[in-house]
Write a protein that binds this DNA or RNA. Structure first.
Length: 902
RNA sequence: GGGUUGGUAGUCUAGUCCGGUUAUGACACCUCCUUGACAUGGAGGAGGCCGGCGGUUCAAAUCCGCCCCAACCCA
């Protein structure tokens, strides 16, 4: 039985431990689960190398609201947890922690070290997440590097390869010279950087034959007169790419420079000649409007290379150093080469101007290094041919909130590259592929052998099936980490290859498709998208019924939290000061999808609500001590009791809808005010006067329901109260009926269907409210005795309640009689919804006439401004005047007269 | 540069899709009150040109156009 003050510091960790120890939220692996009622959640696994931040706290808490609600309201819930330790983040962490370099180890050896290092971090992370009280099933966890997941990941590769969805191609790819690996489009970001624009003079080389072909006298004159001196200017931020220059482009609408088209240009310092070509992709606004095309400066260069069949002149190598093409600059780093080339251009008189600018460059998001475009051999997953289908499967999901679908839509529509999945790194999940040393035939591992590492394992064949050669080269690239993290639904469902049946199977087919995928809005474009694509290709099914997109946590001033600004709020500090349930209250405080600020006020409000719930529970306990009646005779319930239970029924309906729609903020605020205002302030205050079975039953029934309704939100305090007050008793509606069951495993309340005169209840509470206000305004204590009160409203059945709580000595109810008051008409209110459309612009005249009291009331009708308004088109505004003894109080439809001599 | 979302009392927020004349609630603020749990409580009060300008309409926080500010996504 609850007593004293609520002590979250003691209570919350106790329940967190018990939930884990007793496996409260375990998914029943062995018992069959009804696929129609199971609720399965697939969460994006966090990187464990960092510590818990507010974004985690917020995200996990939202997931937990859904998990706890669905568990009570629906059926069995599957809520797993994953650790993403297959990536460069954990690779770097391991290197730092052990002071080693991954290059010095064999791949499997290094990965073993990674897992050792990550294990400690995972343990810490697990503790932190368990301290949030989220109802994860800790028996269902996975690491994205573990062998089982490696197998799933390689199976995925092999399946897509078999389907013909993957190909290996030597083509321009985005390359990070610092990390020395290819990367995909999503791993780059824009960075504002200081740079210089260099205006460089390019000499025109007139080809005699073509020059004469122009047949134009003026051109010929220019040709002969200025041949040596004729130059044009190219502006570039990357002069180190001069040796890679393969063409010069002019816009077809650029009349001024049109005469250059068809000629050749000589590249300064390097002396090779390149064609001058017209193409509408030239940006005429930038620099001189004439641009050079290099191998490769940007994506435009790649398009030009492909469309115009240009030469390949690779001047920068995989580590960012100059190649032999750069002649005397060979071996210099591209940055050094830039300075040297600029100096030499200047000396040669070819540098016309150099000015400082800032521009955006594409950098690798991990290391901030500007990316290059290199021609390398890489593996790709084909996507561009199916973007329409991928749009459709995105549309098939339910999006909470709906508006987030447009992000997905724009991302898919804007795709420019197939998905590059090979990475030149030494840790990660290996490609299960070898190549014939003779003919380069691709040899893919057998599904039954997976996982394999070609660096340590042998290929599945002794001789090349194409040419019979018996030597093989292992693929030493690893898979992009998203190639694995995009498989979490399949990992969770236990997807595998059944060699005997020769088909893919699932250990838990009932989980797939998953009911919910929660995640932040920042990863829609890659993580969610890639997951949809891969799971769809493997199963022909959209992997998720619904996706719930949460926003980002901002600081108190709505600024983005950042370490450099110093406005980062640490969960640890918050949890030291506030109960976990208070952070849960805060997390429910905004519409899902919106970014929202950290608000200490919300945490305090949460604390207050927890305390109110605790204190009200104590009062319920003392007003209706055990044993309380489980099922009183229906006729015994008083009007007030029926009214409360009926109101609670509607609240349950409303709340259930809101939670189903993931409208946590409205759910939270609605339930809070119903509990606080209607139950505590109205019903409980009145019930203090009561000492009967009906009241005891009503108090306990309502209270038990409130605990359940609050349980998804305030997980700890409701569990504590449930065990204090109810866990010993048998839950009549709970089939499990376990005496020690968690409240979180009980059934969500169904409406009781109690009949009640809702209007009478509303009138009665209005009467109480108006009397309370009278006392307040007259500075009377709320328990001050009132001599006589007359009520002109039908509050029959509530008399004792009103007299009891308001301490009225003599209450008279006039259910039908009009109040003994004079009414004075003070004006006319129009019903604009009817009058507006009906009378249109005559409304102005009607209003003007009403303002001047120029109207006539005729029975139910109103004559004004030449028109006749019907009864339902207007209402008469009156004030009541009372000339008798006592004081007139009124609210809504009730009139109360108080006579008090005191 | 393009797109998306948001801008409502001091602060946070509901309402905007589907227009209706008194714009919701909380926190903070002011006044009063010890009701059988809670003063960390209760009753009341004040506080708003609904980002700006224009348009549509009898009527606009709500629909349309332009602009400003912020965040995010994509170049």
């Amino acid at each position: 039985m609850p007593s004293g003050e609520y002590d979250p510091d003691a209570v919350e960790p106790r329940w967190q431990r018990r939930w884990v120890d007793e496996e409260t939220y375990a998914y029943p692996d062995d018992d069959p689960v009804d696929p129609n009622t199971v609720f399965s959640i697939d969460t994006p696994p966090p990187t464990v190398s960092g510590s818990l931040h507010m974004g985690h706290l917020y995200g996990f808490t939202l997931q937990d609201f859904v998990a706890r609600f669905e568990r009570m309201n629906g059926g069995t819930t599957f809520f797993p947890f994953g650790y993403d330790d297959n990536g460069i983040a954990s690779e770097r962490l391991t290197e730092d922690e052990l002071d080693i370099r991954h290059q010095d180890f064999e791949r499997r050896e290094f990965q073993a070290k990674c897992r050792e290092v990550c294990a400690d971090y995972e343990e810490q992370f697990t503790e932190n997440v368990q301290a949030l009280g989220v109802s994860v099933d800790w028996d269902h966890t996975y690491q994205t590097i573990e062998p089982r997941v490696q197998r799933v990941s390689q199976l995925s590769f092999v399946d897509l390869y078999d389907q013909g969805r993957e190909y290996r191609e030597k083509a321009p790819a985005i390359w990070c010279p610092e990390c020395e690996t290819a990367i995909s489009q999503v791993e780059t970001e824009d960075d504002e950087q200081d740079s210089h624009f260099h205006d460089i003079a390019f000499p025109v080389v007139r080809d005699e034959a073509t020059g004469a072909n122009g047949g134009d006298a003026a051109a010929e004159a220019a040709d002969t007169a200025d041949e040596a001196a004729e130059t044009f200017t190219i502006s570039t931020t990357r002069p180190e790419l001069l040796p890679a220059c393969v063409a010069v482009f002019v816009h077809p609408d650029d009349e001024e420079n049109q005469q250059l088209v068809g000629e050749s240009a000589e590249v300064p310092l390097f002396g090779h000649e390149v064609p001058i070509i017209a193409d509408e992709r030239v940006d005429m606004e930038t620099g001189s409007g004439i641009v050079m095309c290099c191998t490769f400066g940007d994506q435009n260069d790649i398009e030009w290379y492909q469309v115009h069949d240009l030469d390949l002149r690779v001047a920068i190598d995989e580590s960012g150093h100059m190649t032999a093409v750069a002649e005397e600059y060979e071996g210099l780093h591209s940055g050094e080469a830039r300075e040297a080339i600029v100096a030499d251009l200047d000396e040669a008189g070819a540098l016309e101007e150099r000015r400082a600018i800032t521009h955006t460059v594409n950098v690798h998001e991990r290391c901030g290094t500007s990316v290059e475009f290199l021609v390398t051999e890489q593996w790709y997953i084909q996507m561009l041919d199916k973007t329409d289908e991928y749009l459709d499967i995105g549309r098939e999901m339910e999006w909470s909130p709906e508006k987030m679908f447009t992000r997905y839509e724009h991302w898919v529509e804007g795709l420019q590259w197939d998905w590059l999945i090979s990475r030149q790194r030494s840790s990660g999940i290996p490609f299960p592929v070898w190549y014939c040393a003779e003919c380069d035939e691709e040899i893919v591992a057998e599904k039954t052998d997976l996982p394999v590492d070609p660096l340590s394992d042998d290929p599945p064949v002794d001789a090349c099936p194409a040419c019979g050669h018996d030597e093989f080269v292992p693929e030493d690239d690893v898979l992009d980490t998203w190639a694995t993290s995009s498989l979490t639904p399949l990992i969770n469902a236990g997807w595998d290859w059944d060699a005997e049946a020769e088909e893919f199977t699932m250990e838990h087919p009932e989980l797939y498709r998953f009911d919910l995928r929660p995640q932040g809005h920042d990863i829609i474009s890659f993580w969610l998208f890639h997951t949809l694509v891969k799971c769809y290709e493997h199963t022909d099914e959209v992997p998720f019924e619904e996706t719930m997109i949460n926003g980002h946590v901002l600081d108190e001033n709505r600024e983005k939290m950042s370490k450099s600004v110093g406005n980062v709020v640490e969960p640890e500090a918050v949890l030291e000061e506030f109960p976990v349930d208070a952070t849960r209250y805060w997390a429910a405080g905004t519409a899902v999808g919106d970014d929202f600020p950290f608000k200490e006020k919300d945490l305090r409000a949460g604390e207050k609500l927890i305390r109110k719930l605790w204190n009200a529970s104590k009062l319920v306990e003392s007003l209706a001590p055990e044993p309380f009646p489980a099922e009183p005779d229906d006729g015994d319930l008083r009007e007030l009791d029926r009214w409360l239970l009926a109101e609670l029924d509607s609240e349950i309906d409303r709340l259930t809808d809101l939670l189903e729609n993931r409208e946590f903020s409205k759910a939270r605020d609605g339930l809070r005010s119903f509990f606080w205002n209607t139950f505590c302030d109205d019903y409980l205050e009145i019930a203090k006067q009561r000492d009967d079975d009906a009241a005891a039953y009503t108090l306990r029934t309502a209270h038990r329901r409130f605990l359940k309704l609050f349980a998804p939100l305030l997980a700890h305090v409701t569990e504590e109260l449930w065990h204090d007050m109810y866990a010993d008793a048998v839950e009549p509606n709970d089939a499990a009926g376990g005496a020690t069951d968690s409240i979180h495993l009980t059934d969500w309340p169904e409406p009781l269907g109690v009949d009640a005169d809702r209007d009478a209840g509303a009138a009665a509470t209005a009467v109480v409210g108006v009397i309370r206000k009278y006392k307040s305004e007259n500075q009377l204590p709320l328990n001050a005795e009132l001599d006589a009160v007359e009520v002109y409203a039908d509050v029959r059945g509530f008399e004792a309640d009103i007299t009891g709580v308001m301490h009225v000595a003599d209450l008279t109810v006039h259910p039908d009689a009009d109040a003994p008051v004079e009414t004075v008409i003070t004006g006319i209110d129009l019903d604009y919804a009817t009058v507006g459309p009906k009378y249109g612009d005559q409304v102005g005249d009607i209003e003007a006439a009403l303002a001047q009291d120029d109207y006539e009331i005729d029975g139910d009708e109103l004559h004004v401004a030449g028109v006749t308004l019907l009864a339902d088109e207007f209402s008469i505004e009156k004030t009541r005047q009372y000339r008798g003894d006592g004081e007139l109080l009124e609210a809504d439809d009730v009139v109360v007269i108080v006579n008090n001599d005191a």
